Amino acid sequence: MTSVDFEHLTAAEARTHRTEVEDIYRGAYVDAIRAGAPFTDPVAFMQRFDAYTAPNRPGEFEQIIVSISGRPVGQVWGWSLSKETAWWNGLQLDEPQVHDDFTVEDGTRTFALSELMVKKDMTGRGLARTLHNSLLRSRPEQRATLLVRPDNTRAYQTYLRWGWYRVGRLRPGWPDAPQFDVLIHDLRQ
């Protein structure tokens, strides 16, 4: 019999699962890692993970790892954007005149969904959707945001089907970061 388990983790708890986090990443991003782009290098990815889960980092971090029969196969994580967030730095809004206060944060307005991944051999089973919904349904924020590469057609189209919409684009401050489209999802609907 197959068992499916979802483990909810705080930042401190997530740090104790570094091996599983990297293993899931390597299994989900096989092709991107093989392509050799510096941003997708597992070492660079784990450096970002360490920064996201660092002690005393602003914003409430939450992670969910899904395991099937004891094997970690997928994960999702994010955090609430604090008043001091750098998340919006470099944002180019599609309609800037409409959103004068768009980037104003107070720690309760926006949840940043940073990563959602399922190992390549486990895709097509609804695990990504289940992880996505499990993380967002309990969030108290008004909205969620995520960054998606415009050329990642499969993920992009999936997010649009799940109710996300584009508001602009930005390049994060991480070394070798590509340009991303910025998507928003209303959590109060």
Rank of each mutant, 00 (worst) to 15 (best):
S3P: 02
V4P: 03
H8G: 07
T10G: 08
A11E: 01
A12M: 11
E13Q: 15
E13P: 01
R15F: 04
T16R: 15
H17A: 07
R18K: 14
V21D: 01
V21M: 07
I24V: 12
I33D: 10
P38I: 02
P38K: 09
T40D: 13
D41S: 13
A44G: 13
D50N: 13
R57Y: 04
E60I: 07
F61S: 05
F61G: 03
E62V: 03
E62G: 03
Q63F: 05
I64W: 06
I65E: 04
S67P: 03
S69N: 15
G70C: 08
R71G: 02
R71K: 15
R71Y: 14
P72I: 01
P72F: 00
V73Y: 05
Q75I: 00
Q75R: 09
W77N: 00
L81A: 05
S82M: 05
T85Y: 09
N89P: 04
Q92D: 12
L93P: 03
P96E: 07
P96R: 09
V98R: 14
H99R: 13
D101C: 06
F102K: 02
T103W: 03
E105R: 05
D106H: 11
G107A: 08
G107T: 01
T110H: 03
F111C: 01
F111T: 04
A112Q: 04
L113S: 05
K120W: 01
M122C: 14
G124Q: 10
G126V: 00
L127Y: 04
L127H: 04
A128F: 01
A128W: 00
T130E: 08
T130A: 13
N133C: 11
N133Q: 14
N133H: 14
E141N: 12
T145W: 02
L146R: 02
L146P: 00
L147H: 06
L147A: 09
P150Q: 11
D151C: 09
R154N: 13
Y159P: 04
L160W: 05
W162P: 01
W162N: 03
V167I: 15
R171V: 11
G173F: 08
P175M: 11
D176N: 15
P178V: 07
Q179K: 02
F180I: 01
L183I: 05
L183E: 06
I184D: 01
L187W: 08
R188M: 13
